[in-house]
């Protein structure tokens, strides 16, 4: 969670009303509440996250920063949810992304369904550490690639 202590705004704008929220906040709209890490990211940090509901689709922009000088591999996918937290789309494929040393990478994604009003981003990096409590199914030893 230390990667998320950086103050960054998550603007969750639903129905045209922007709700700027802080990354460190415990509310449901903070960056931490939207991110599910498999292990803990060692070098990659979320510096910004924005979401807006426009034309019936949820558009999400996520900015990640690679604190390392070396290239880092990121695997990610989104989970699209309705207002009650139910998944409204099939399980997405994991997507690979290379982030160069000290690079800020912006991921722009639009929901694949008109039913999505909320999301979670699932992330994994081969450099993830596994110290501390984590979900039993999550491990840096089992990255989402073959």
């Amino acid at each position: 969670m230390k990667q998320m202590t950086m103050i960054a705004a998550l603007s969750l704008a639903l129905g045209g009303v922007a709700l700027p929220l802080q990354a460190a906040a415990a509310e449901g709209g903070s960056i931490a509440s939207k991110v599910e890490q498999l292990g803990e990211m060692t070098y990659l940090t979320f510096t910004d996250m924005r979401a807006v509901h426009r034309d019936g689709l949820l558009r999400v922009q996520v900015t990640l920063f690679n604190t390392s000088a070396s290239n880092e591999q990121l695997f990610y996918r989104f989970r699209w949810l309705d207002a009650d937290g139910f998944s409204v789309w099939e399980e997405e494929p994991w997507k690979p992304e290379t982030i160069y040393g000290k690079q800020s990478k912006v991921l722009n994604v639009t929901s694949p369904t008109l039913k999505a009003v909320d999301f979670r981003i699932e992330v994994q990096s081969p450099s993830n550490s596994t110290s501390g409590h984590q979900h039993p199914a999550s491990s840096a030893d089992n990255p989402p690639y073959r």
Binding site: R77, E91, P93, W94, K95, R146
Partner: peptide, 14 residues
């Protein structure tokens, strides 16, 4: 089936 497949450089499931 949703894992990133990097077995060869050929066009694959991912």
């Amino acid at each position: 089936a949703k894992a990133v497949e990097t077995v060869t450089t050929d066009l694959g499931s991912t």
